[in-house]
Structures are given as structure tokens and as C-alpha cells.
């Protein structure tokens, strides 16, 4: 954040065509949880273009290392060791510095560490499945983890989620707030998943699929996937006829 002057301009209008609509009946839970009336458009006021910014001080040393942050001393989780890295950019292609990125996932067998999870696959005593980091001055982030397994879920009779990692991202304004999921290159479950299929745009789905990144693998240690996250852009210059508050 230090090198970036604060930006005070409104965000680009959100292109709702790249996002899933609220009502997607093949993802059954959306049926009763989708508003039926149109959203009311609200161009950015101070209330939306501002947002919380978290200092690096909230991050501890192993917050972005899921291989060690829940493991007992001297032990580690079972599974494929991977590095996930990328940049948080905005629609202008500018790195978003100081963005808080939170992530969570199942273990290698597809089991989540959550009270309400009942899948047969066992918990891994050395894997929690949660981490977070803050992007550097150029928007880069990375974390180490175990590649998650697919898991079945009660939607259709035989629906399985592709391997995925959930991401929650804060930019610089509350209007940039985003939660999404990262998928892995080559997973055949991606294209039959009802949650993936909530997104009508094939290109938008492909942008959620992280490619294998052999350049970033650490030989004899871990594989790597690259996942860039794009947040809403904002106008670069303030062109207002009348300044706020005057």
C-alpha cells in the first residue's frame, strides 16, 4: 500500500454477464435463496467506494502455509504438495496492493474440517484447511497447501464437486468484495458441476481454472498452480462536475 496513492474514484459498473445469476435451479439451494426482484442500481457513493484495508500486521508467519499451520510439530498432512500463486489485479490490469486474500478447502480426500460435514472420507489430523495472506505492493500472493480432493454433495443424486479452493478477496472498496472458487487444470468434473454451471459464460469459467505452472514448481518438493484474480477496476481520474461534499 505504501507506494500506491489512495484512489477515490468510482468503480466500473459490474458486468453481470460474467457472473452467475441468482436463480440457477440446477443448483438446488439457489431456488429459495435467490431474490426475484431486480437489483436497484446504485452508482458508487463514498459508502461503496471505500472499504476496509487490512495491514500486514494481522498476518502471522504461517498463515499462508496450510502444510504447517495446523500440523503437529514434526508431522504434516497427507496429499499432493502444491504452491498456489498469482496476482490480484483490477480490470485495468493494475496490481491490487495490500489486498486481503482468504482461502479454505477440503483435505486430500475431499473432507472438510467443519461441524456440519458428514462425508465418509476421514479428517487429516494435520490439516486444517484455512489460510490467508495479503498481496505485496504489486498485487502478488502465494500460499502452500495440499491439493484438495473432489467430494460428493447432496444436490443431484450423484453430484461431485471438482477439486477446488475457495477464495475470499478484499480490494480497496466494499464494492470490490468477491468470493469465488479456483479449479484445477484438466479436472473432468469441472464441466459437469452444477455450481460451475451457474456461470453462463464459458470464458468466465475458464478464468477460474488454474493452470499447472511448471516454472513455479519447486523441484523435489512441490507442484504449482497459477491463479490470477481480477477485481473491479475504477476510473483512473476523478471527472466530477461537482465534488463530493461541496
Amino acid at each position: 500500500m505504501k507506494n500506491a496513492p489512495p484512489e477515490t474514484t468510482p468503480f466500473f459498473a459490474r458486468d453481470r454477464d460474467v457472473h452467475p445469476p441468482a436463480y440457477t435451479p440446477w443448483y438446488k439451494t439457489s431456488v429459495l435463496r435467490s431474490p426475484q426482484r431486480a437489483l436497484i442500481s446504485l452508482e458508487g457513493t463514498k459508502s461503496e467506494i471505500t472499504g476496509p484495508v487490512f495491514g500486514h500486521g494481522i498476518i502471522n508467519e504461517f498463515d499462508n502455509d496450510l502444510i504447517v499451520n495446523y500440523a503437529k510439530p514434526g508431522e504434516g498432512p497427507i496429499g499432493q504438495r502444491i504452491l498456489v500463486h498469482g496476482r490480484v489485479l483490477d480490470e485495468r490490469g493494475i496490481g491490487v496492493a495490500g489486498a486481503l486474500v482468504e482461502f479454505w478447502q477440503a483435505n486430500a480426500g475431499g473432507r472438510y474440517r467443519h461441524k456440519k460435514e458428514t462425508y465418509l472420507a476421514p479428517l487429516d489430523p494435520n490439516f486444517g484447511g484455512v489460510g490467508r495472506t495479503i498481496t505485496d505492493e504489486n498485487g502478488f500472493y502465494w500460499f502452500k497447501t495440499i491439493k484438495p480432493g473432489p467430494y460428493p454433495w447432496p444436490n443431484g443424486v450423484n453430484d461431485w464437486r471438482p477439486a477446488h479452493i475457495h477464495f475470499s478477496v478484499f480490494g480497496h472498496g466494499f464494492a470490490q468484495r468477491l468470493i469465488t472458487q479456483m479449479y484445477f487444470e484438466g479436472d473432468p468434473l469441472i464441466w459437469i458441476c452444477p455450481i460451475v454451471k451457474t456461470i453462463p459464460d464459458k470464458d468466465a469459467i475458464e478464468r477460474l481454472i488454474a493452470p499447472l505452472d511448471m516454472n513455479a514448481t519447486i523441484p523435489h518438493d512441490m507442484g504449482a498452480y497459477k491463479f490470477d484474480i481480477i477485481l473491479r477496476g475504477r476510473r483512473s481520474t476523478l471527472f466530477e462536475n461537482r465534488m463530493e461534499g461541496n
Partner: peptide, 16 residues
């Protein structure tokens, strides 16, 4: 660039 598409937070959003 295009904004990254949203996906549901899912039932286990609390883990993260």
C-alpha cells in the same frame, strides 16, 4: 480485463 466470476461461498465458508 474481465472481473473474476463469483461463486457461492458454500456451506463451509466459516472454515475460511
Amino acid at each position: 480485463l474481465k472481473e473474476t466470476a463469483s461463486q457461492t461461498a458454500g456451506p463451509y465458508v466459516h472454515i475460511g
